[in-house]
């Protein structure tokens, strides 16, 4: 419980997290008004906000040597990593819910399932950030996959609906579990 509180404090006192969430909400309002239907807006550019959210939650740990402070205060790495993912989910769920609600208010249509998609994607981005430990390479990789390669593959390959960027919860959940396990393994075994 102490660790979850510490991780929540970390996220809450990082200005970049606040800017990302508020920026995502602002873009939601803009795009929900512009897009032909709310799904186009939600399953489109808005995802970038949640990718950034998950990614900087992970990589900020490696800036300014903070990881040393974290692991000296909380050396049980598995527990610490679980607390990190838990804190991220606690922050992401309301952020995603507000995003979907804003979309509904502006466009008049409802696409509640998108909130789950946002949460899964955020946790996947966190795992990628834990693996790379660096922001920009991971960001380029995630954006290039979710916005360029993924959409290109979607109509062209038969297995496209089972890929990482599927909005289907039953596909996204196993991907999220696999990514988080890989992130956990790396966090547990690597030299900090």
């Amino acid at each position: 419980m102490n660790l979850l509180r510490a991780e929540l404090l970390k996220l809450a006192t990082l200005p970049a997290i606040r800017f990302t969430v508020i920026g995502t909400w602002a873009v939601t309002v803009l795009l929900s008004a512009a897009a032909p239907d709310v799904s186009t807006a939600l399953y489109g550019p808005l995802l970038a906000g949640f990718l950034i959210l998950g990614l900087i939650a992970a990589t900020s740990e490696y800036q300014g040597g903070q990881i040393r402070t974290t692991l000296v205060a909380a050396p049980r790495r598995v527990t610490t990593y679980v607390a990190k993912v838990g804190a991220l989910v606690v922050i992401t769920l309301p952020a995603a819910a507000v995003t979907v609600a804003l979309g509904t208010i502006v466009s008049g249509e409802s696409e509640a399932k998108a909130a789950g998609y946002f949460a899964f994607t955020t946790v996947i981005a966190h795992a990628v950030g834990s693996l790379t430990r660096r922001t920009l390479p991971a960001l380029v990789g995630l954006l290039a996959y979710y916005f360029i390669v993924g959409p290109l593959l979607q109509p062209r390959v038969p297995f496209a609906k089972y890929l990482l960027d599927s909005p289907d919860w039953f596909v996204a959940l196993p991907w999220t579990a696999v990514a988080t396990s890989l992130g956990l393994l790396a966090f547990r075994s690597r030299d900090a």
């Binding site: 512009a34 186009t40 550019p45 922001t135 920009l136």
Partner: peptide, 21 residues
């Protein structure tokens, strides 16, 4: 790099912000 990369790479996608606007 976070903001310029996000804005500009997202805008390459088929459903770009520019296109929606």
């Amino acid at each position: 790099g976070i903001i310029p990369l996000s804005v500009l790479i997202v805008n390459i996608s088929v459903v770009s912000v520019s296109f929606l606007l």
